[in-house]
Measured scan of single mutants.
Amino acid sequence: MSIQHFRVALIPFFAAFCLPVFAHPETLVKVKDAEDQLGARVGYIELDLNSGKILESFRPEERFPMMSTFKVLLCGAVLSRVDAGQEQLGRRIHYSQNDLVEYSPVTEKHLTDGMTVRELCSAAITMSDNTAANLLLTTIGGPKELTAFLHNMGDHVTRLDRWEPELNEAIPNDERDTTMPAAMATTLRKLLTGELLTLASRQQLIDWMEADKVAGPLLRSALPAGWFIADKSGAGERGSRGIIAALGPDGKPSRIVVIYTTGSQATMDERNRQIAEIGASLIKHW
């Protein structure tokens, strides 16, 4: 067993022997301040990774656009098919120029040779490549099948209805392509620590998230040296922004954090800054 596999296998073990965790309302004060600064709703939840206990939450059962955070769930569904012998990570998928959609920095470079399922998941999570996500959605049967996968996990809230990039439209009061912070946090925890996926697939999923290259201005910008984070960000229309993450000190994750916002007129930089400040408060009061 590799060191990384050992780390993920012992996530519940280490967490069980940690000192009790206590909620700190100071972080919620910052979440509410972010709402004021952005002029928009902000949803927040913080779960203990081992027990699933909610440590703090704000608007945990209000719907927010998922945006690209759905790509972690998508690759979880792909990995479940791999575990069941219905898919192979090494299978190569070929596609054409007509398949390319807006923001496809990886797939646009491989029109000639195609990409493997493993490479597509890596591109979808680490670079948020939209064509990679659409190609992977095709392998599982489309958005409705991802929703069905989530329902089978016990998540009857999260739903995907459309493809990239239309799913980022974020129309107010439109339930399409949305989740709730509580539902997303619980589902992410199941994917990373539950028995739904094999140990190898859980490790692969967290490795992809740990290698995320496009979430630097968010929670990662607030992390002290030595902290662990595996995350996936999302951005959408109407001032929408979000991030889902597993993080913790001492090089291992111990909490799940989900943050979503929508309806702001603020710039992307300002949305990023507010999420980073929430992260800084979380870490300060850990």
Rank of each mutant, 00 (worst) to 15 (best):
I244K: 15
L247W: 07
C75H: 00
A245G: 10
P253G: 09
T126I: 14
L191I: 03
L111D: 08
T179C: 12
M180I: 14
I171W: 01
G194A: 05
Y44F: 10
L192I: 01
V101S: 15
Q274E: 11
C75S: 01
Q204W: 00
P217S: 12
L73H: 00
E210T: 13
M115F: 12
K252N: 08
L74H: 01
L73C: 01
E175Q: 11
P105G: 06
P65N: 08
M153N: 05
T178D: 12
L197N: 11
N272Y: 04
R118W: 07
M184I: 11
A40T: 05
Q86G: 09
F149I: 06
F58W: 04
L197H: 02
L282M: 12
E62T: 13
G114T: 12
H94A: 06
V72C: 03
L100I: 13
R159K: 14
G76Q: 05
V42W: 14
T158K: 09
S221G: 15
A222R: 15
A280Y: 11
D83E: 07
T126A: 11
T107F: 03
K252W: 05
T138R: 13
G85L: 03
H156W: 10
S68H: 14
G279H: 14
R176H: 01
S128F: 04
P224Y: 09
Y103Q: 12
L282S: 12
M127V: 08
S264I: 02
N134R: 01
G154I: 03
E277M: 10
S57Q: 11
S221R: 12
Y103C: 07
F70E: 12
G141M: 07
E277D: 05
F228C: 15
N98V: 06
W227R: 06
K252E: 10
A245D: 12
V157W: 08
L47H: 04
A148M: 15
N130K: 10
T193V: 07
M180D: 15
G43E: 06
L199R: 08
N272A: 11
S96A: 12
A211I: 07
N272S: 09
S51Q: 07
A183K: 00
A222Q: 15
A182E: 06
L89E: 02
T262Y: 13
I54R: 07
I278V: 10
W208Q: 05
P224C: 11
K109C: 03
S221Q: 14
D99F: 09
L73V: 06
E61S: 02
C121W: 00
I45M: 13
M66W: 06
L111H: 05
S240I: 03
H285V: 01
V31Y: 13
Y44P: 02
R273L: 13
N130C: 09
G242L: 05
T112Q: 04
N272I: 06
D155T: 08
N168M: 13
A148G: 08
G234M: 14
L192N: 14
E61I: 02
E119L: 07
L205R: 03
P25A: 00
H24W: 10
H110F: 11
A132G: 05
H151Y: 04
P65R: 02
S68D: 14
T267R: 10
N168R: 13
S128L: 02
D113I: 04
T107V: 04
D207R: 01
Q265I: 14
L223H: 06
A225K: 01
S281Q: 02
G39Y: 12
L136P: 06
G85T: 03
P165K: 01
R92D: 12
G248C: 08
K252F: 15
Q203Y: 02
L38S: 01
N152D: 13
T147M: 06
A222E: 14
G236V: 08
H24G: 09
R241W: 15
G85P: 07
G141R: 02
L199D: 14
V106D: 10
V157N: 06
H151P: 02
I171V: 01
G263K: 04
E56Q: 12
T69Y: 09
M66T: 04
P165W: 01
E195P: 08
T262H: 12
T178N: 14
G141P: 04
G234A: 14
V42H: 12
L137A: 04
N173G: 13
E102Y: 00
G236T: 00
G76A: 06
N50K: 10
F228H: 15
G216V: 15
K71W: 13
S201N: 05
F149G: 03
L136S: 04
R255Q: 08
Q86S: 11
A170G: 08
Q97W: 03
G236W: 14
R189Q: 04
L247A: 10
N50H: 11
D83I: 13
S240C: 00
G248P: 08
L137S: 01
R202L: 02
R81V: 06
D33Q: 04
L188D: 15
R273G: 13
L282A: 13
L192K: 10
M115T: 05
H151L: 02
S264Q: 00
R159E: 15
T186K: 01
S128C: 11
T27H: 10
A230E: 11
Y260N: 09
G279E: 15
L197M: 02
P60S: 07
N272C: 07
V29L: 13
L146A: 02
T139L: 09
A246K: 12
P105L: 09
P65W: 05
D155I: 15
I243C: 06
T131Y: 09
M66Q: 03
R273S: 12
G194F: 02
T193M: 11
V101I: 14
P217R: 04
E46L: 11
P224L: 11
Q265G: 11
Q37R: 06
P143L: 05
V117Q: 07
V29Q: 14
R92I: 15
D48L: 12
E119N: 01
